[in-house]
Design a protein around this nucleic acid. Sequence first.
DNA 1: GCCAACGTTGGC
DNA 2: GCCAACGTTGGC
Length: 159
Amino acid sequence: MTQPRQYWLFKSEPEEYSIDAFAKDKRIHWFGIRNYQARNFLRDTVRVDDRVLFYHSNAEPMAIVGTAKVVKSGYPDHTALDPKAPYYDPKSKPDQPTWYMVDIEFLQKFPEPLTRDQLRDNAGTADMVLLRKGSRLSIQPVTESEWQAVHKLAGVKEK
DNA sequence: GCCAACGTTGGC
DNA sequence: GCCAACGTTGGC
């Protein structure tokens, strides 16, 4: 029995990690998530072959800039266990890790960033979690129709 | 740079 | 277990 594919939006500050860096790296660990709700998604819900919208936050422009696919589901985020790592968390223990990460692979960079204004002005994307007031979650669920609408807006094919 | 929204911490 | 104080996120 195959599970239906799920869709997500991952936020990244481009000064930290941009779509261009991702396009070069191709396959990366999505680490450093230190929020319990986002952690729960990474640990329990995100699965291999799920699709991801890559979003630039705190940036000019703030926009969905490309896509990725999940290639490894949740496993312990070892950067929480390394005292020298910036994401070190002394509460996380090797035998009982607090934080999780997934691996993702680059799919495509959109020809133009999809800005919040564009997403708001489009019926198919106006209700995205991303656009809700006070929405700070860095791992957000996206519906299949939103995923499709984003590609239509970007003028690209789904991968 | 401001600040609203939200999450976490810690005193009680 | 409550909740005030504090810290962070992230849009504007």
